Simulated scan of single mutants.
Amino acid sequence: MAASMPVWTRFYPAGRTVVREGDIGDSMFVIVEGRVAVMRQPDAGSGTTVRELSTGDFFGELALVTDCRRTASVVAVERTVLLEFSRAGLEEAGARHGIQEAVVRMTCQERLLADAFRDTPLLAELSPELKLELGSAFVPCAVEQGELLLTRGKPGTALYVLLRGRCAVFHTHNDGHTTPYPDLEEGAVFGEVSLLRGRPASATVKAATPCTLLRVERDVFRKFFLGEPALRRALVRLGLERMTRTLQVMVRSPYSMCSD
């Protein structure tokens, strides 16, 4: 294939890693021949296989649809032939290879939601019907390390589900000292307290690593979430548990007597 074309043919022997979780990506892949394993590796080790893909399937689309980092590693299970598409390649040549951009976006959304519903306890308990209804409310987004998602004292603008990465949570006192709370790990839901109570956020949440999240805007949250009694109860319960933990941390803090 000509070097100027934004589509390339790649050959991978069994056991070779095609993409690695956490890396920045700017292309997606279509399997022409062979089979790959999609693996999650939250910690060092062999990882967990989430799914296997074979001829005709594609992967890596999240990097093109949302600019998020790779959310999983993909390893060739057997000798595998791939077509690699840049963003321009998908736009120019995707249809010729049977890959429609609308299908890519829909599949990306479905895979992210499957991750969220599998790994987030609050969402995993929902009925299949409710999961289907709420699917369009979640919008994938990526943030880099250090980006603020919630700021203490300011109204929250969204509900978040943390799919990949880790977020730091802390309370900043008027004298400048901070009280840290336990970090938010993958599968955490946050931002619900401010949205449910209509009050400013009680703590600051900052990305401790590059993060991939699902975001529900405030107006969408009110439309989809507050009208579902089971989901509202679950969110209220989560909010109460979080506020209880916050009070316990504040009581133990040496700065709990400082003026806020």
Score class of each variant (00 low, 15 high):
residue 48 T to M: 08
residue 256 S to H: 13
residue 202 S to Q: 08
residue 16 R to T: 09
residue 187 G to C: 07
residue 183 D to I: 07
residue 161 V to Y: 02
residue 167 C to M: 09
residue 55 T to L: 05
residue 256 S to Y: 11
residue 224 F to G: 00
residue 260 D to Y: 11
residue 155 P to H: 05
residue 19 V to A: 03
residue 5 M to H: 10
residue 79 R to E: 13
residue 112 L to C: 10
residue 91 E to M: 09
residue 195 L to E: 02
residue 61 E to N: 03
residue 161 V to Q: 03
residue 117 F to L: 06
residue 247 L to Q: 13
residue 34 G to A: 03
residue 136 S to C: 12
residue 203 A to G: 03
residue 130 L to V: 13
residue 93 A to P: 01
residue 44 A to L: 13
residue 137 A to T: 13
residue 217 E to K: 10
residue 129 E to F: 12
residue 223 K to H: 15
residue 184 L to H: 10
residue 19 V to Q: 03
residue 6 P to H: 05
residue 131 K to M: 11
residue 250 M to K: 13
residue 196 L to R: 03
residue 8 W to H: 14
residue 17 T to H: 13
residue 207 A to C: 02
residue 119 D to M: 12
residue 201 A to I: 09
residue 42 P to L: 04
residue 220 V to G: 01
residue 90 L to K: 05
residue 192 E to I: 06
residue 140 P to G: 09
residue 227 G to C: 06
residue 29 F to C: 04
residue 257 M to Y: 10
residue 226 L to T: 12
residue 174 N to R: 15
residue 81 V to R: 15
residue 105 R to Y: 06
residue 134 L to R: 09
residue 218 R to F: 02
residue 260 D to I: 07
residue 243 M to H: 10
residue 258 C to S: 14
residue 197 R to C: 10
residue 184 L to S: 07
residue 164 R to H: 12
residue 4 S to Y: 14
residue 137 A to Q: 08
residue 175 D to W: 08
residue 41 Q to Y: 07
residue 247 L to D: 12
residue 220 V to H: 00
residue 227 G to Q: 12
residue 65 V to D: 02
residue 110 E to D: 15
residue 73 S to E: 00
residue 100 Q to A: 15
residue 49 T to A: 11
residue 32 V to F: 05
residue 194 S to L: 09
residue 256 S to A: 08
residue 137 A to G: 10
residue 34 G to W: 04
residue 135 G to P: 06
residue 20 R to I: 08
residue 77 V to H: 10
residue 16 R to A: 15
residue 83 L to V: 06
residue 102 A to I: 14
residue 10 R to S: 04
residue 111 R to P: 03
residue 86 S to W: 00
residue 47 G to P: 03
residue 36 V to W: 00
residue 86 S to D: 00
residue 33 E to Q: 15
residue 142 A to E: 02
residue 29 F to T: 06
residue 105 R to C: 11
residue 179 T to P: 01
residue 55 T to A: 11
residue 22 G to E: 08
residue 215 R to N: 04
residue 249 V to K: 13
residue 68 C to M: 06
residue 243 M to I: 11
residue 88 A to Q: 14
residue 54 S to E: 10
residue 138 F to A: 00
residue 51 R to H: 04
residue 72 A to V: 08
residue 75 V to G: 01
residue 22 G to N: 08
residue 24 I to T: 14
residue 99 I to G: 00
residue 171 H to W: 11
residue 257 M to Q: 12
